[in-house]
Design a protein around this nucleic acid. Structure first.
Lengths: 370, 370
DNA sequence: TTGAAAGCGCTACCAT
DNA sequence: ATGGTAGCGCTTTCAA
């Protein structure tokens, strides 16, 4: 009864012992059809009779069949996109952003369309190298780029490749046809911040800018500045790239006699820092100093006082990114990814994500003596 | 002169136009050898003459050859591992942790050994589902799990599969043979925190615990408690799962007549919250209240006063995770990944990462009146 | 509507 | 030391 072991006989390779996953050959055999029919069925293509389709699906399910990623990719190209994060700053707040972005993107991608992986690089050049490599290795079908810097090596590299890409945060122009953009419509919001503070009566206003190497913060500072121009107010700007620099710039700024009565920061962490410095100098917020955070976050309503802030809809940004990915992959002539094109009933939004109105909390008030 | 277009003739498919990447067939032809020799050479295996090896490598480089991930995976199994992050809390600090972990892991993995991708799931069950799926689809060769919860669905799922896995933060026992563990040796550190505070003269000590659903915070609280026992001090513990709950628990705690003179938190964000609540109640830190953060971070030295904190060597944890991954993949009988075994001269560290001594900053002092 | 079969790019086995 | 070649699991013609 015990069969003679024949090592190289595939028929004998015990599925359970050898843990060999079922393939479409197994499904085809069990369903009594050819592998072509199985493939057609499992990919939901027409040309298979209803009864056959049902039987194949049932058998595949019973056998616990799952597609082998590699085999599928070998013919159809990769069904995954990657977001390569440049992670060179120890301060955590910004780093969390990509995960929230992914959460949003997944909502519009769906598990069967495309998977989105996050990778980490130490610099833009490193990220560029990884993307180049993974593109030529056909590992990913598209890439997402966030936190674009001035003269970013990643964009230069992506430009030299015919690669579908989604650029988040900046509208590059001119951009290759294979690129999609997702931008935050924060220009208006920052101009409104200026109007809000001016209307409160503030005349000496300063901004703690984000890194001058990042494109988006520079743009936001410019928007605030232009929003103040119509009030005849000149914006003072200090460098805020990293907590150390921001702290070093804030102390003399707030200790001076002509100190600003209102401060706008680019991000939430820096706004918290402003609160801290003000406290050390004995300045009461909002009575002696108003503070506006340029990037809202849960941290902004946990401080005392809570921080008036410009909304930062990261998940919304992520959803738009998901759509942009599908568009980019749909537009790519070769290497198309199944399910990239929006199905009927779905309306892909534009790549411009509205920011909404300033969230007014406790850190802003008319200046003292007004 | 113009050749008649023959659509299906592979010889005619123009490499530059069709953007067809070179394969080992191209390399073999250009080098005048067989594909087997090319494969052997490119995988650095012996049995190829020095002259041939050099020629093949040169040709491959000139042609810009890169391995096709899918084709290689089809035979050898996937050469990538995934860290599926459960990202269900809006508060950003914790979410940044996986990226730092990956940064550390990459230092011990090297670009050619194994790539580590981060994915995001909304719950442990969701993460478990993704890992199950990606394992059966042969998409990843191993998984990394962080932030293990009590009764974590991910561990149950991984246990039911013969999958190499690295569990970070908790030593599960008994664990499958394919698992590796990386734990922070923070028990001693937390016991030392107790001794430190007791030696300063504190007698009423409270801990704002992390989530009771996470394994590591529970363990840390227990370590602190046992460290205080020898001083005859009973630790008071309040729930600190999320800023809202922590804040709600802190107010009555610190407003009471028998309020603690020292507070230990599980993480850095909560410690910041303690500073804020103390300030609102008019308690001076460290004079009226000492604060120790259980997780050091850049945020801890930016506050006023800066926070005494237990070190949190995330990158070190990441490096250990990288080693653990290589071990797990080396131990896995099937599906071995090239380069998983440590080369000569490399000494894989144990999976227990030392935490080091408490970092004393400005938030701790003897209690008032001592 | 279904079946047979040719690859996709690479690795690994067996000859030579 | 090198060449020939059979697959890995799937998709996709082309015939029937």
């Amino acid at each position: 009864m015990v069969p003679t072991p024949r090592p190289n006989d595939p028929e004998l390779s015990d599925c359970s012992t050898h843990s060999r996953r079922p393939t479409i050959v197994d499904v085809a055999r069990a369903a009594g059809v050819s592998t072509a029919v199985v493939s057609y069925t499992l990919n939901g293509r027409r040309g298979v009779s209803a009864t056959t389709r049902e039987r194949v699906l049932r058998v595949a399910d019973e056998l616990g069949w799952r597609p082998a990623t590699a085999a599928r990719s070998l013919r159809s190209g990769p069904a995954a996109a990657a977001l390569v994060v440049v992670h060179d700053q120890p301060f955590g707040t910004r780093a969390a952003f990509p995960l929230d972005l992914v959460t949003g993107a997944l909502q519009t991608l769906g598990p069967d369309t495309l998977t989105l992986a996050v990778h980490v690089a130490g610099s833009p050049a490193h990220a560029a190298q990884l993307m180049d490599r993974w593109w030529t290795e056909r590992r990913y079908a598209a890439f997402v780029v966030t936190g674009v810097r001035v003269d970013d090596a990643r964009l230069a590299t992506l430009r030299s490749l015919p690669v579908p890409a989604v650029v988040v945060g900046v509208a590059v122009d001119p951009a290759p046809a294979t690129w999609q953009h997702v931008v935050l419509d924060d220009g208006d919001a920052f101009a409104q911040v200026g109007a809000f503070l001016a209307d409160l009566g503030h005349r000496r206003i300063a901004m703690v800018a984000g890194s001058e190497h990042l494109v988006a913060p520079v743009r936001r500072a410019a928007a605030l500045e232009s929003g103040l121009v119509r009030y005849g107010i000149e914006l003072r700007t200090v460098a805020g790239d990293g907590p150390e620099r921001a702290s070093a710039a804030l102390l003399p700024l707030l200790a001076a006699a002509d100190r600003p009565t209102a401060i706008v920061t680019d991000d939430d962490a820096t706004a918290g820092l402003v609160l801290d410095v003000a406290r050390r100098l004995g300045l009461g917020v909002p009575w002696d100093l108003s503070v506006v955070a340029g990037t809202d976050s849960p941290a902004c309503y946990l401080t005392t006082p809570s921080l008036t802030a410009v909304p930062y809809p990261v998940e919304e940004l992520g959803r738009a990114t998901g759509w942009a990915l599908r568009t980019a992959l749909g537009a790519a002539a070769s290497r198309r990814v199944m399910g990239a094109e929006p199905a009927e009933g779905e309306t892909p939004p534009s790549g411009i994500v509205p920011v909404g109105r300033l969230v007014v909390r406790g850190s802003t008030a008319p200046p003292a003596g007004s």
